[in-house]
Design a protein around this nucleic acid. Structure first.
Lengths: 121, 121, 121, 121
DNA sequence: GTGGTCTAGACCACG
DNA sequence: GTGGTCTAGACCACT
């Protein structure tokens, strides 16, 4: 389900949160569907329940999921908003990438060529 | 010369190393030219010499610069290679970005549109 | 009759209790009238009878309702008192709000303006 | 400096975070000034460093403060934004209060009267 | 059973 | 010294 990489510098809880957010953004996890319990996911991933809790907490404060005490964690209903936010992030990343390219004297046209190559492969 | 941003989450030594690498990639610092001494740069940037040393160390292990004991640190001769490596990184980043976009049902054409918008602004 | 929101962070039993207290305060439920049985309300709201029981218990200790063993739960006779208590709470809340506004250099006049805006919308 | 209430249902880390946010909003803590270290504040308040860390983390993700590894935590520069957000919260609270009042047949005019009474006292 | 908070103690990265 | 992450284990509130 989720892939953890301990060599990756990013903290575990962030990898968990990002992984789940992706699943939500791509509608693999549908709105209002229940997520695995904190303890269960902790066992599955062989990590501490506290770490899962932290990931869930981060997602909740981001509005990606909501939690009900005594019942569990659920996917937030307006996943559209989540998708939009991720698209905005994409836009920002591309912005930085174009800036970096400029500094290296790589024309935007070159970047576009690369994208076309992606499409063919 | 170099711009440090303490609010940016990135560690100082990384900002220093990246800044120097950019200067090398753009040939602002020419091959075999001498870099400022660890202590001098530390004073200029008002940071700890340890931090500068660490940045230089990172650059050396990356092949961007080389150090001569008792003399100082110098820009590696094949700076074209440095530039090429950074361009490759750019290519890889763009690759991941296009993949992420696909997963979000954002067509490559949309990305190209965004790039065009960059050019105009 | 009662509206439950699972996404709302507040516990279910509290939402149930508050909902009933509001109905009492607005005289929708008259004094000494009988409330639905624990089991019946649980079925209606599709929640656990324990949760309803807890809500009723909270209301009883607050004096909003009283329970007769073997007969059921009933609205407390002096519902005016309930309403008055809720109005007092409102007064207290407004007091704190004005205090907080002062600390933020927001004049009471501004608050009054906001209230007028409410009336128009 | 900060007041903790263990009887209050709110979690400790939230009380700490809110307290600091208030100090920032009221300019008691100026922009870019350094906050007490995690360990130091933990000792002062007689709580676990982890709890302080959590409070600081929440404030950082809210943009109230920023942290520099190995240096400390600092007040975010644009405290204007923090103040504005708190004012927005105030507005929302007042909105809910007016709604609740309406349900209790308490006219907005009454609320305004209460505010005037505040001013005189 | 569920989520949520807190403590204690350890380890790492940064300066 | 600083912040940041993770584990282990306990306790509470809710269903």
């Amino acid at each position: 389900m989720l892939h953890l990489d301990y060599r990756d510098g990013r903290p575990i809880y962030e990898q968990v949160a990002d992984g789940i957010e992706q699943l939500v953004a791509h509608n693999v996890l549908e709105a209002d569907s229940q997520l695995p319990s904190v303890r269960q996911l902790a066992v599955e991933l062989s990590i501490n329940p506290n770490t899962v809790q932290r990931a869930y907490g981060a997602l909740e404060s981001k509005g990606v999921i909501y939690s009900v005490k005594g019942k569990g964690n659920f996917v937030s209903s307006d996943s559209t908003q989540v998708r939009q936010r991720r698209i905005d992030e994409l836009h920002t990343q591309l912005h930085h990438l174009v800036q970096d390219a400029r500094l290296l004297d790589v024309a935007p046209a070159t970047l576009i060529t690369w994208i076309h190559e992606e499409e063919q492969s």
